[in-house]
């Protein structure tokens, strides 16, 4: 188990290297550069600009320089205001992480409860209500949801704020109550939560239904265990195995930030940084955000794999 985990951790390095290399050459191949504009600069100025950022060097040399810097932990600068990429990722990542953690907790709690309640009330009105939410929630694109929620709760009712994120902007503010503004937190979290919550609810419902049909549950019931204990001790634990597997990717996707939600609510998060980086051909930031995302995905997958083994001892390592 330990050896397996260690091996998987070591594999992350070549995976990141391949992603870095692919991304590097891909972004160079995409038309337009960070300073491409409709207006033509005089050639001398264009050269000066390229030289300032080392973009006039041969590609392989830029690549070598970049890889060398990364190996030393230097992610370089963003062309957008010359800010260090590591700082951008730290700040925007912190905001996105807050949204992600909140959304994750809400989605998991809500999704699992809803799925379990649905399954335990199989083919009863509560079940249909749950299925209804899960299917409708999963069929509306989140930018539409965000717009509708904004109009209803921000513009028409005026209950909630539509601009910015209500959590602390810096890690140091995390225990400062005045850094929290719940009215700015509700809508982004809800808009981001509905889809994963619906998905988790679906998976949980199916999984609980399946476990409930197993022999050991019948045995437990036959033994005269109360329904409550049957559910708590035997069903949920076993039913969570498949749920765990969908939770991993959901966590990774949430942590990487949602461009759509962040730009709709004007939140300075990682999703917005990574998409605008591509839209502006901000090479340093493209590399930084892609690698960060890859790292998160790799770690999330690893955690899920290990967790999965803990929950289900039958799993064989290969």
């Amino acid at each position: 188990m330990l050896g397996y985990t260690l091996r998987r951790v070591l594999w992350i390095i070549p995976v990141l290297w391949v992603i870095a290399t692919l991304t590097f050459f891909l972004m160079q191949a995409v038309p337009g550069g960070p300073f491409t504009s409709e207006k033509q600069r005089p050639p001398a100025l264009e050269e000066a600009l390229q030289a300032k950022y080392g973009l006039n060097e041969p590609l392989w040399q830029q690549y070598a320089t970049y890889m060398g810097n990364i190996a030393r932990g230097d992610l370089g600068i963003s062309f957008d205001g010359d800010r260090p990429v590591s700082g951008i990722i730290r700040h925007s990542g912190f905001i996105s992480a807050q949204i992600a953690i909140l959304s994750f907790v809400v989605a998991v709690t809500f999704g699992i409860s809803l799925g379990t309640i649905s399954a335990l009330n199989h083919n009863k009105p509560l079940d249909y209500a749950g299925v209804l939410f899960a299917t409708v929630g999963a069929s509306v694109p989140n930018f539409v949801l965000a717009a509708f929620l904004s109009i209803i709760f921000g513009v028409e009712l005026g209950w909630l704020k539509l601009l910015g994120w209500g959590g602390p902007p810096e890690i140091s503010d995390i225990f400062n109550p005045s850094a929290y503004h719940p009215s700015k937190m509700v809508l982004p979290v809800v808009a981001l939560t509905v889809l994963p919550a619906a998905y988790i609810a679906r998976v949980t419902r199916a999984s609980v239904l399946e476990v409930l049909s197993q022999d050991y549950i019948r045995t437990a019931r036959a033994k005269g265990l109360s329904e409550f204990w049957v559910v708590m001790r035997h069903t949920i634990r076993n039913a969570l195995i498949p749920v765990l597997t969908v939770i991993g990717p959901i966590a990774a996707i949430l942590v990487s930030g949602s461009f759509i939600i962040e730009s709709t609510f004007g939140i300075p998060g990682l999703g917005r940084e990574s998409i605008t980086a591509v839209q502006r051909r901000d090479y340093g930031l493209i590399m930084g955000t892609t690698l960060f995302y890859a790292l998160i995905v790799a770690i999330a997958n690893l955690i899920v794999d290990v967790l999965y083994a803990v929950v289900d001892p039958r799993i064989r390592y290969r």
Binding site: S150, I151, L162, T264, G266
Partner: peptide, 14 residues
């Protein structure tokens, strides 16, 4: 700093 002008308009309305 807001790029999404529809979102900006909604924030103006709110």
């Amino acid at each position: 700093f807001i790029d999404d002008l529809s979102a900006a308009f909604r924030s103006y309305q709110s």
